[in-house]
Amino acid sequence: MNAPLLNAPLFPAAVGAADTPLLIAEGLTRYYGARLGCGDVNLTLHPGEVLAIVGESGSGKSTLLGLLSTELAPSAGRVLYRMRDGATRDLEALTEGERRLLLRTDWGFVRQHAEQGLRMAVSAGGNVGERLMAVGERHYGRIRAEAIDWLGRVEIAAERIDDDPRTFSGGMRQRLQIARNLVTRPRLVFMDEPTGGLDVSVQARLLDLIRQLVAEFGLAVVIVTHDLAVARLLSHRIMVMKSGHVIEEGLTDQVLDDPREPYTQLLVSSVLMP
């Protein structure tokens, strides 16, 4: 691998077995004024586990993602994360510097709208290289080699490295977002409707790519989607949200094939089958 800095003391080897949770949420609650965004959510996520949060618009799934990723502050409850040094920390107690380091090294965030997850005026190579530079890489040649490697992994031709994402199709932008996030080998990636608004054929390619990368790097993923097919394809576990609460959760195929709650049965029965 040509990112020697990632092996530097900044990131000691991951410790703790896969049986120790990576992410723990306890009683996560968020109010917007008097309105409940998300209420009393508890979850644990282990390394390599993919958790889908499904529900319709306004169900609180995006609020939950915001709370887990520290983009939103909870009204109550807390989020714990097992850092690369093996210590499990309350994320609210992190300093802003520590939080940012976490966000750009051990975490990734793939957003529905690429323009929120990419720097649209910066070339593809610069987008991929930004995280490397942010953690101190100061060798242009190495940054570029790593960027080319990652563009290849997400099936973007190397000759597009100096083009900026405004010239990319929707699917390419999403793949570039993924490369930009994975370049520091994060252990946890948040995804917010990553296939939203894409053509079906483009979606299929993106989902396949995500599936492969998740398996190859053993990523833990929290993916928010309203598309049950996406949840079925990518996730191990599923949480169904409605009106800010988790109403049903379990193994993905179990929840989708044997839904218990009225709302989940409605969701499952509303899917169009080709």
Binding site: R119, V122, S123, G129, E130, R131, M133, Y140, I143
Partner: peptide, 9 residues
């Protein structure tokens, strides 16, 4: 890191 992105560009 951001300002190095500009130099990279």
């Amino acid at each position: 890191g951001l300002i190095h992105v500009k130099l990279y560009e």
